[in-house]
Design a protein around this nucleic acid. Structure first.
Lengths: 338, 338
DNA sequence: ATGAAAGCGCTAACAT
DNA sequence: ATGTTAGCGCTTTCAT
C-alpha cells in the first residue's frame, strides 16, 4: 500500500509538497507542472492517505456515529437513509450503532467512539439515553445532536413536528365524525411521546372534546406494547372509543391484532390511524391509515447541524418545517351509526 | 483527554511500561506494585488509548464493515443483530454500510474503508457486488467473508441452507395436497436465488412434479417485484397454481396484494408461503406462513470466521447447520376441492 | 523489572 | 515554489 513518501519519491518532490497538492491546499502555490507530476504519481500508485495517520495529526476522523434505539423500528429507516445521504455529501463515514447492542455497556461504546477519538461527533436518536451519560458528553464538549428528541440539557436538536402530525391524525378522525377517541401513546418518559400526546390534547381541545385517561394507555413503541395498551383500554368499562390514534406503527400492528381477536371490525366498528408511514401499512389487515413525517429530511438536517457544530459554529434547535402528510387507507371510516 | 504520557508521568514510570501494563502484555514481568500504580493513574485520569495512534502503530483498527444490500429488507435485521453481538464479544466495532448509499461510488466507499486502513476486514452480504471489485479485494489480500452468498472467487463464506428451507416450504405445500405450485423467485443472478430455486426443484422432483416455467417469475426480493411476478404468472394462460412459494418476505407482501386485488382468497383459493420470518408476518392479510432461517447465527459465525482470517488462520466455507423452521400461520391450507 | 529510542504516515509551521 | 522539521500517541525492540 503506497504511502505519501512513495508518491513524493516517484514525483521527485518532498512529502510535504505532495501532501499540499493532494489535499488541495490552496494557501501555498505550486507550479502546475509539479502539481501534475504529483497527481500522476498518486494515481499510478493508487495512493490513499492513511486514515489513522491523518487523524492522529489533524484530530479529526471524518466519521460520525448515529445511535438508534432499534433497527427493527422501521420508522428509523427513513432517518438512517437521510443521514447516510447527507453524510456522504459532506464526506463523513457513519457508524450506525443499534442501542440494543450497548444496553449493558453504554459507557463502553461511547468510550470507544468518543474517548478513543474514532468519531468527530454523535447523532443520538436514542430517546432513553441515560442522563448521566448525556451530561458527561456535554462536559467533554463532544459535538452532539439529538435527533427526534428535545432534551433540556441538549445543546442541539433536530425534530419533526410530532404534535402537529398527531393533531392532524386526530383532527381527521374528528372530521369523520368520531367523538370518543382512544390514544395508544408512546414510551413513557420519552420526548416524542410527550409531544405526540400534546398534539392529541390540542386537537381534542380545539373541538371541545375531553382527554379521557381511561381511553389512553402506553404502547411503548413496540408491537407487544400496542397489544397490551389496546387490551387495557378495552378492559376499562363504560363506552369504548370509536376510533384510535396510535403513536407508532409497530404498536398499531399490535393494536390491530387485538381488535381483530376481539371481533371488532376495522374500520366498521373502530377506526385506527397510526403515526409513521411505511410500505407495510399497505399490507396490514386492513391497510392502515398513517401520518407520514419528514423523517428523511430530519436525518439530513441532523448531519448538517452536527457538521456545523464540529466546525465550531453555534448549535441550534431545528424543527423540520415540512408538513406531515396523512396517508389515508382502509382503517378509517365514519363511526358506526349506533 | 489524557494520553499515555500523562498516565506514565502520574505513575512515575516510562510510557512503555505503562503501555505494557495497560495492554495486559504478559511477556514481560512488572512488579505488582508498579502495576497497581499505573492502573490507578489510568483510572484516575479516565485514560483511553487513542485509536488512531494505536492503529497507526499496529496496523489494526479493531473495526470491521458489514455491507448489506438494503436496510429495508427486514430479513437482514437478524443478521445485523447477530453480527453486532459477536463483534462486541470479539472487541470489534462495526461499520454498517447500506449498499444503496454506495451504488454510484462503490469504489470510493471500499477505498475509504480498506485502502485508508479504517477496517480490518469486510463482511459482504451484498449479493450484487460487482466482480471487478471482488477480485480487486482479493488481489489486495483484504480479509473478506461473504455472508449469505457463495461466490466462486470468494475465499470464505457463511450461508444458511437456502435450498433446504425452500424445499421444506414446498414439501409442506405438497403435504397439504397441492400439485400445482407457483414460485416467485429471488433476484436473478444472485446466489441465494439460485439456491432457493434449487430447493424448489428438489422438492418438486421428489414428488414427481414438474418445475413449470409458466408458474415461475422473478420477484427481485422487493415488494414491487413480488407484485409484478404474481401479475405475470396469473396472466399466463392455462391452469393456475393452487399454491405459491415466495422466496422473500417483501415479495410476498406484493404477491398477496395482487391476489387480493384479483379477488383470489388466501388460503381458500390459493395458499402462500414465504421465506424469511419477521413479526410483520403476523399482521399481513392473512397472517403469512413463513420459513425461519438461522440468520442470527449466520451473522455470528460470519464475524467469527472473519476474525480468524484476520488472525491469518485459513479461510473456510461454512453452512449453518441449524435446520430451518416452518412457522405456520393462516396463509396456507389444502387446495380447493375443485 | 524498567527505560530509551525509533518510527508508524501524515500535516503544518516555518525556513529558504 | 519547495523543502526542513517536528510531532500527533502509541507500540515494540533492544539495552540496562
Amino acid at each position: 500500500m503506497a504511502s505519501l513518501k512513495d508518491v513524493a519519491r516517484l514525483a521527485n518532490v518532498d512529502a510535504s509538497t505532495a501532501s499540499r497538492v493532494l489535499r488541495g491546499d490552496t494557501r501555498q502555490a505550486v507550479r502546475p507542472e509539479t502539481r501534475e507530476r504529483i497527481l500522476r504519481a498518486a494515481a499510478e500508485l493508487g495512493y490513499r492517505p492513511n486514515a489513522s495517520a491523518r487523524s492522529l495529526r489533524t484530530r479529526r476522523s471524518d466519521t460520525i456515529a448515529l445511535i438508534v434505539p432499534d433497527i427493527d423500528n422501521v420508522a428509523f429507516h427513513a432517518v438512517i437513509a437521510g443521514v447516510e445521504t447527507r453524510a456522504a455529501e459532506l464526506g463523513y463515514l457513519v457508524f450506525l450503532v443499534d442501542s440494543r447492542a450497548i444496553r449493558d455497556n453504554e459507557e463502553d461504546v461511547y468510550g470507544r467512539l468518543i474517548a478513543e477519538g474514532r468519531v468527530d461527533g454523535l447523532l443520538i436518536a436514542y430517546a432513553r439515553m441515560t442522563d448521566p451519560l448525556a451530561s458527561q458528553l456535554q462536559r467533554r464538549h463532544v459535538p452532539v445532536v439529538f435527533v427526534n428528541r428535545r432534551a433540556e440539557q441538549a445543546p442541539a436538536s433536530v425534530v419533526v413536528d410530532d404534535a402537529e402530525g398527531s393533531a392532524q391524525a386526530v383532527e381527521y378522525l374528528i372530521g369523520l365524525g368520531h367523538r370518543r377517541i382512544g390514544f395508544v401513546a408512546g414510551a413513557a418518559g420519552t420526548d416524542t411521546a410527550r409531544r405526540r400526546e400534546e398534539g392529541v390534547r390540542r386537537a381534542l381541545a380545539r373541538h371541545g372534546l375531553a382527554f379521557e385517561s381511561r381511553w389512553v394507555a402506553e404502547g411503548r413503541y413496540t408491537e407487544a406494547g400496542g397489544r397490551e395498551a389496546m387490551t387495557r383500554i378495552l378492559a376499562n368499562g363504560g363506552e369504548r372509543p370509536t376510533a384510535f390514534y396510535v403513536a407508532n406503527l409497530l404498536s398499531a400492528l399490535g393494536a390491530l391484532a387485538v381488535l381483530r381477536e376481539r371481533g371488532l371490525r376495522v374500520p366498521d366498528d373502530v377506526s385506527v390511524v397510526a403515526m409513521d408511514e411505511h410500505v407495510i401499512a399497505n399490507h396490514t389487515q386492513p391497510p392502515l391509515t398513517t401520518v407520514a413525517m419528514p423523517l428523511g429530511r430530519m436525518g439530513e438536517e441532523s448531519v448538517q447541524l452536527l457538521h456545523r457544530i464540529i466546525q465550531h459554529e453555534p448549535p441550534d434547535h431545528i424543527v423540520i418545517p415540512d408538513p406531515p402528510q396523512l396517508v389515508i387507507r382502509a382503517s378509517t371510516a365514519p363511526p358506526p351509526t349506533a
